[in-house]
Every structure is written in C-alpha cells, then in structure tokens.
Simulated assay, not measured.
Amino acid sequence: MKVRVLGCSGGIGARARTTSFLVDSDILLDAGTGVEDLTVEELAAIDHVFLTHSHLDHICALPLLVDSVGGLRKTPVTVHALPETIEALRTHIFNWVIWPDFTEIPHYDRPWMKFAPLSIDQTVQVGTRSVRSLAATHTVPALAFHVHSRNGSFVFSGDTGPNDEFWRQVNGVEDLRFLIIETAFANRDQDLATTARHLYPIQLGEELAKLRREPQVLITHLKPSDRLTIEREIEAWAGRFSPRVLERGEVLEV
C-alpha cells in the first residue's frame, strides 16, 4: 500500500496544499487543494473518497473532482462520511446554488457521485485494504481513519483536539507503521487552538504520552504563517517519539 501526500498543510501559499492523501490509486482521504495536482487520468481512477469532516480545507476539491471526471467513469464516486458531513455537503455545496448535485446528474439512476454514511468504528473493505473510522474531537462532527493492508496499518487523525477514545483505538492497532497527526497552532495560540479543537505542541506531547505503540509519528496541518515556530516547538515538546513534519509529495509505503 502506497500513501501519496497530496496536501498536508493547514493553509495555502508558497506551494502549500491542504489535506489530501491518495492511497494507492483509488482511495482518497480528504479532498483538500492537494487534489488539484493530479492528472485527469489519476482523478478518474479514484473510486472512494473518505472525508474526516465538512470543513472547506478538507472538502474543497471534491465538487471539482466529480465534475471533472464524472463523465469518464462507469460507476459513481463513493463519498464515505458521517451523516452530519453528508448533510452539510448536501445543504451547502451540492445544492444547485453553489454547485450541482451530482447524486442526480446525469440521472438519478446513473449518478456521478453517491454518499455512503459512516458511523464511528465502522470498517469499509476496499479490495485488499480496509478503512476503519475512529473517534475524533473537532468543532463539527469528525472522524479519524485507520487504514490497513496485509503489510501494515497507518492512522490519520484528521482534525482533532484531545480524545482518549482515539488513543484507545490507536493503541489497539498491532501493526501500526505510521501515525499522521495534526498540530495546527503554535503554543502562544493555545487558547485559539483549544477553541478550534486543534492541537498545539505542548498538547501534542501530552497526547503522544498516551500512545503505547511505536509508529513513526508524522505531523500535519501546520499553519503556513507559523510553520517554523511550530516545528521548533514540536521538537521541544513532543517527547520520545521524535515526530517529523510531513511534506507534500512524500510517498509512504505501508
């Protein structure tokens, strides 16, 4: 299983791209601005999109993705998400005001996109890989994901603040190779981070102390304007795991 980092930033600018990971060629975890770097052929190969939550930096490329390649595909793109996320997309994006509803185009019986509701701790089998939804804590209903193949697993936290249930689930993953976890704000902005339910470096260290496995810890979702400060503070506060900041364009082999 190969995981291509299309975007891992908390914002845009200076070639930064927001959150999106391509698993092999057919599974997309979140649909941030990183999707725009794929070719039309690569876009058309995506069969499943798993969304952590409804915020714009994680879903903004989805409408354009479906619009760009829907006519090239024989089956609809399946969007897996919490019911609350699906309702947000129906109400605010695919509403015929902001964008057409591709669950109705070109016909109800032959849509370019379909929704598949997820609940926490639900597993979806996609070929030889499985995607399990984990608990996350954010300002809107949100998920993390555990992706498993025959050779190992990785976990992607999505956007989350402290969450003991998340760590209980992560510690149950025996073959965990990578933990991709967000740290959006610098320590000086910890009040904002707490309100927005994101992590900051001191809190990241506190959360990683709950980890009982030994994966490589990769940090995502840094605000571009504060990236250097956050990187220095992660190094100082993150503890024994020596996390490193994930880079756009990396390919992780699991």
Rank of each mutant, 00 (worst) to 15 (best):
A81C: 12
I105E: 00
S130N: 09
G161C: 11
P63Y: 11
I120Q: 05
P111R: 10
R73S: 00
I93E: 04
T91F: 14
I93Q: 06
P76K: 12
V79K: 02
A142N: 01
S119P: 00
D164T: 11
I120E: 13
I93C: 13
P106Y: 13
V155T: 01
V155L: 09
L89D: 09
H138N: 10
H138P: 03
T160S: 15
E87P: 05
S153C: 11
S68H: 08
H148Q: 14
T139C: 14
T160A: 12
E104S: 04
D109W: 11
T137N: 15
H107L: 10
S157H: 08
V97Y: 14
V124C: 12
V124H: 03
M113G: 00
V69A: 02
T137I: 06
V79G: 00
P117Y: 01
F94H: 09
R129D: 07
L89W: 13
H138S: 15
V97Q: 09
H92P: 00
T137H: 14
P76C: 05
S133Y: 02
S130R: 01
V147M: 07
T160W: 13
D67V: 00
S149C: 15
R150Q: 13
F156K: 03
G70C: 02
N163Q: 10
A135T: 15
V69S: 07
R150E: 12
H80A: 04
W99C: 08
I93W: 14
T91K: 15
S149T: 11
